[in-house]
Design a protein around this nucleic acid. Structure first.
Length: 708
RNA sequence: GCCGAUGUAGCUCAACGGUAGAGCACAGCUUUCGUAAAGCUGGGGUUGAGGGUUCAAAUCCCUCCAUCGGCUCCA
């Protein structure tokens, strides 16, 4: 006997071995028809799976349930896989999970799948759907399953099986087991039959590495989307189209905010006047906040000696993603090569290369007479030697981070505990040689400006300072109504890419956790997301097409102070090491602006809007007064534009509306006679006539309050 | 960096082996107009760059560059 308790508490009794399908049949015909999969004691199972437990929590899921939808999409991936295998028999299937809004299937196929193939694949899928073949599960003991998979000659499935848990492995056939129909190693569960995979569409194909490892075989990943009904599918496609209209690259072009010019360089942003004034308003907001919170502005150069970044660790750690160093002489380049060799020296071949290079440098540079450099000396000794040579003749690096400069500002004076915390702030422009395939609009660029600051404080002050940084970040995000963010606490994993002692890391992680807990926000801890010098709190948002981007960040760092041997004099008159906090509420002004553009769809709040008011004359007769209105608005600091062209008023309004200018002032003879303005908004609302001083005062107030 | 797609006037696109076109924008002229596009005229392109095939290339092939979507990376 099986007692199945339904979600509403009702208990149904059935004989042992009853299937979910049979239980559902007893509940109601509508539900039986819609059922895709069942949940038995929290486990998703096929509707045909027999149930043997005496008492179970039982629920039936349809495409209206998140898990039901997921199973439907997973099954749709199988149908797509079958269609692809039918059309391209060389296909080796790899892995096909459901994802947000759909599914993908990774395949290994020498011939590239192109968008032209999508229609053919969809047509074949439609046939499979029409056949309504059942998804049939069968299991084999692990040994039998492994030899079966090995015989089939698909190394990916063998690998999947090796990773799967359990003594038995399950397979799904679309049809009956002896029908010769398509089958796939799969944990399941699946929908009852191939007609139940929803309204689908193949969306795109892309490369993907096996196991997500760039050194492994590259596969083709075919993405599809699937929805309960054709109407849902259509709504999704329409929504995608709408989202693309908000794309900051498109709006940036239309509104003339920024441009990226191949002649200047990929990933290097040119802010045009309209974009620059928007960005400037953001910077002004941040400057006001920083001044009120005791930050001190500094200015530092965009370039620094390589030795600076050797000390911080950035140069060796991020070698591949920095612009190559600048060397003023060939010898400087050679010395750096020598340093590289000394640093990485750990093999006989490297040692030979090192010796040859060393000899070449000595031969060309007789002034370096003192060899003092036995090739079998310990690494530290060799490094020390080479670094003394580098003092007079080093290369330079376009800065990838601002912290080393700020550290040297801190180190330029002796510091007392009474001075701390010291908060050094700079809109610091940094340069990173991002991979060519990564560059995208304003969100991933090679030169960008951080609203950066570094706080140097005592260990006791860390907690309060971090909490203040988190509070500031939340404040600006809230002010901009960017409330749809998630908080990620990035911790270290067990890889060896991190610098610093275990003890430092533990203290830092405790500080980060305390700060984020205190804020009361929801957050997720993610191992492997830390910076190489410390853990961090990141504020992550989605762009209009659903990609995650890190904006603000707060990081605590016990390691760079140690590497730079920073000191302050404590109450006890002894030297102590300060703790550093790296933080940037916007993160990158470029990326933040890109996200803001999409968030507002280009219709910025008044205080951020590139043009705040446009004055449009109805005809030449009102041109003089329009000019006066324009001059007055501009005179009190409102960003006003003037349109006295010979166009008709309708055309002027259209042009201003398309540029998303918040207030359009229509100035005709009537307004001119009464010295008033007629106000229309970019949303087409007519606010009517008002006196000019009243309008300007209201406008100025709205700007001053940064009303969003 | 890798896989695939795409590069035609300032912008959005057409022409798909046979003399590069439209709309918008821009300039000039006419119009002086009341809340999302007035009319006429005109200028503007070695079709991303460089090679190749062909009697003939925007169109076919190759190599770069850039953009887009993924993957990998992200201090």
């Amino acid at each position: 006997m099986v007692k199945a308790r339904l979600p509403d508490g009702k208990v149904l009794e059935h004989p042992n071995g009853v299937t979910a399908e049979q239980i559902v049949a007893g509940i109601g015909p509508g539900l039986a028809k819609a059922a895709l999969v069942a949940r038995v004691n929290g486990q998703l199972v096929d509707l045909k799976a027999p149930i043997h437990d005496a008492e179970v929590e039982f629920a039936v899921l349809t495409s209206k349930d998140a898990d039901g939808l997921m199973v439907m999409r997973h099954s749709c991936a199988h149908v797509m896989a079958e269609a692809i295998c039918d059309l391209f028999p060389d296909t080796k299937l790899v892995y096909g999970p459901p994802v947000e809004n759909g599914f993908y299937y990774d395949i290994d196929l020498p011939r590239p799948i192109t968008p032209d193939d999508f229609e053919k694949i969809e047509a074949r899928m439609a046939e499979i759907v029409a056949e309504a073949r059942p998804f049939t599960r069968y299991e084999l003991p692990r040994g039998d399953a492994m030899s079966k998979l090995a015989d089939e000659g698909n190394p990916y499935k063998v690998d999947n099986a090796e990773r799967a848990e359990g003594d038995a492995l399950s397979f799904y056939v679309t049809g009956s087991r002896d029908s010769g129909c398509f089958e796939d190693l799969c944990r399941g569960p699946h929908v009852p039959d191939t007609s139940r995979v929803g309204a689908f569409k193949i969306m795109q194909v892309a490369g993907a590495y096996w196991h997500g490892d760039a050194t492994k075989q590259q596969l083709q990943r075919v993405y599809g989307t699937s929805w309960p009904t054709p109407k849902d599918l259509k709504a999704h496609l329409t929504q995608l189209e709408e989202a693309r209209k908000r794309d900051h690259r498109k709006i940036g072009q239309e509104l003339g905010l920024f441009t990226i010019d191949p002649l200047v360089g990929s990933g290097l942003v040119l802010w045009k006047p309209r974009g620059a004034v928007m960005r400037h308003s953001l910077e002004t907001l941040m400057r006001e906040e920083l001044m009120a919170r005791g930050y001190q502005p500094v200015y530092t150069p965009h370039i620094g000696r390589l030795e600076l970044y050797r000390t911080s660790g950035h140069f060796p750690y991020y070698k591949e993603s920095q612009f190559p160093p600048l060397f003023e002489s060939e010898r400087a380049r050679l010395l750096n090569d020598l340093w590289e060799l000394a640093r990485t020296h750990n093999s006989p071949t490297a040692s030979e290369a090192e010796r040859r290079l060393f000899e070449a440098i000595l031969a060309d540079n007789p002034e370096l007479k003192d060899p003092g450099y036995p090739v079998d000396a310990p690494v530290e000794e060799r490094l020390k030697r080479v670094r003394t040579w580098l003092v007079g003749e080093d290369g330079y690096l376009l800065r990838p981070m601002n912290c080393p400069h700020h550290i040297r500002v801190f180190a330029s004076d002796s510091r007392s505990y009474r001075d701390l915390p010291i908060r050094l702030a700079e809109f610091g422009t940094v340069y990173r040689f991002e991979q060519s395939g990564e560059i995208s609009g304003l969100t991933r660029v090679r030169g960008f400006t951080q609203d950066d600051a570094h706080i140097f404080c005592t260990p006791d002050q860390v907690h309060r300072e971090m909490a203040d940084c988190v509070e500031l970040t939340c404040k600006v995000l809230t002010l901009l109504k960017l409330t749809d963010f998630r908080v990620r606490v990035g911790l270290r994993d067990d890889s060896d890419k991190y610098v610093g002692s275990r003890e430092n890391w533990e203290r830092a992680e405790a500080a980060v956790r305390a700060a984020v807990r205190e804020s009361g926000m929801n957050y997720s801890e993610e191992p492997g997301e830390a910076a190489f010098y410390g853990p961090k709190i990141d504020f992550v948002v989605k762009d209009c097409i659903g990609r995650d981007w890190q904006l603000g960040t707060v990081q605590v760092d016990y390691n760079l102070p140690e590497r730079f041997k920073l000191r302050y004099i404590g109450e006890d008159n002894a030297e102590h090491q300060p703790v550093m906090i790296h933080r940037a509420p916007f993160g990158s002004l470029e990326r933040f602006s890109g996200i803001l553009i999409e968030h507002f769809g280009g219709a910025f709040p008044l205080w951020l809007s590139p043009a705040q008011v446009v004055v449009c004359s109805v005809s030449e007769k009102s041109e003089d007064y329009a000019r006066q209105v324009f001059e007055q608005a501009r005179g009190i600091g409102i960003r006003a534009e003037l349109d006295v062209s010979s166009e008709r008023i309708g055309a002027k309004i259209r042009a201003a509306t398309l540029m998303k200018i918040p207030y359009i002032l229509v100035i005709g003879e009537q307004e001119a006679a009464q010295k008033r303005v007629n106000v229309r908004t970019r949303d087409g609302k007519q606010l009517g006539e008002t006196g000019l001083p009243e309008f300007l005062a209201a406008c100025a107030l709205e700007i001053a309050e940064r009303r969003a």
